[in-house]
Simulated assay, not measured.
Amino acid sequence: MAKKDYYQILGITKSAEEREIKKAYKKLAMKYHPDRNQGDKTAENKFKEIKEAYEILINEEKRTAYDQYGHAAFENGHSNNTYSTFTSSSDFSDIFGDVFGDIFGGNRTKRAKKGSDLCYKMEILLEEAVKGTKKEIHIPTLQKCKKCHGSGASIGTKPYSCSTCNSKGQIHIRKGFFTVQQSCPTCQGRGTIIKHPCNGCHGQGRVETYKTLLVKIPPGIDDNDRIRLNNEGEAGSNGAQSGDLYVQISVKKHPIFEREENNLYCEVPINFTMAALGGEIEVPTLDGRVKLKIPCETQSGKLFRIRGRGVRSMQNRNQGDLLCRVVVETPVNLNEQQKNLLHELGKSFNDFRGENNSPRSKRFFDGVKRFFDDLTR
C-alpha cells in the first residue's frame, strides 16, 4: 500500500515554514494521541503516521531529500531512521515542551540571560547641547564578577550539570491529562549547580558596583534625545552579554533663548523712539553679540531672522537661524519734561487716531464703529 504524502498527513502546503509544521503537528498529535484514545488502534496508527511525517518535515536535510525523491529517499538503506510510538508521558510532554512552547515563544532553558538595559537622566545647558560636550557620569550597576568571570563558581571549580532536569533548567509535571512545564527547583532554572560558590559574588556571577563613564554629547542634540552606550548596562547572568545604557538628555531652560528644532528664538526689547525712527542694536547669540538693524516704523512683535546663528543639525549638518522678536517697551519713571514732550507728541497724533501716524489704530477704531453701527440697524 502506497504511503500518503507527508504534507497531506499534516494538512500543510509544501511551502509551509517550521512554525506552521509544528503548529499542525501539535494539533493532530493532541487529537490522536494514544493516551486520549486508549484501545483505539486506528487512532494509534494515525498517530504513528503523524509523528513520522513530522520527524521528516521538521528536519531540513530529510525534508529536502523527501521533496526530491519522495518516500524512496528513506527506503533501501537510504536511511537508518526508525520511528517509535508515543506511549510514555515523557514523550507526550514533548508535545507541550518542544512544540507548544516553541509556538508561543517558550524557552526551555534559562542558563544565560542578557543583562537589563539601564537609563540615566542627564541635564545639560543649551550651550552644551548646541556645541557638544563631554560629561563624566557615575552609575550604580550589576557587573560581571571579576573573580569568577561571571560563572558564579569559586576559582578552580566549575558548575556541574543538574541531574534533576538534565541541564535543561525546566522540568515537566504531569497533572491529569496536561503536562506543566516549570523551572527546576534544584537549580532554579539555571541548568547547572554551583557546589562551591564564589566568595566575591556568592554564586550570582554579578556584583553591585558603581562605574564611571565618559559620555560624549554630540553637537545639536535636543531635549529628550537618547544616547546609547552598547554593553554598558547591567551585566548578564551566568556570563551572558550585558545590556545597554541609555542616556536620556534633558536641556535646561535658557534665560534668553528658546529652541525649536534647529532655530533659536529670543525677544529683544526696544524703546518706541527706536521703533519709530529706526537704528541699530546689539543682540546676543551663543557665539557672542551681533548687530541688528531696526528699520524705521517697526511694529512690536516683528520677527527678524539672523541666518546661520542657530543650531547645526545632527542629521544633515545644516545650520539653523536665530529669530529675534522685537518688543516695543513702554517707558516708565518719566520726569516732568519727558511727560510734557509726550503730551505734545500725542496732540500732534490727533489723539492717537491720526490716519498718517497710526494707520493700525485707525483701522481698528473704524472697524469698532462699523461693528456697533451694524448692531443698531
Rank of each mutant, 00 (worst) to 15 (best):
L214V: 15
C145N: 00
N350R: 15
C201M: 04
L118V: 01
R325D: 07
F178D: 08
D244P: 12
N224L: 13
I194H: 09
Q319G: 08
R108K: 07
K62L: 11
D366E: 04
T109F: 14
K51E: 06
E329A: 10
F100P: 02
L286K: 01
N59S: 15
T179K: 12
H254T: 00
V311D: 03
R370H: 10
E260D: 10
K131S: 13
S151P: 02
C266P: 12
S237V: 00
Q319C: 04
N316M: 08
Y120N: 01
K144I: 09
S313K: 01
E232H: 04
K31I: 11
S154C: 12
H172V: 10
T212G: 10
E297W: 09
E258D: 13
G279Q: 06
K216Y: 12
K131L: 12
V99G: 11
E17H: 15
N263S: 09
D351A: 14
V290I: 08
R111E: 01
K168I: 05
G243D: 01
G239N: 08
L277H: 11
T164N: 04
R370A: 13
L277N: 12
N230H: 12
M122R: 01
E52A: 09
E234V: 00
C296R: 12
T141E: 07
G169V: 10
N76E: 09
G346V: 06
R312Q: 04
G11P: 00
R174W: 10
R36C: 11
I227D: 11
L286C: 06
P218R: 14
Y160H: 03
F272H: 07
G77L: 10
R108H: 06
K158W: 01
R309E: 03
F304S: 08
F272P: 01
S84M: 13
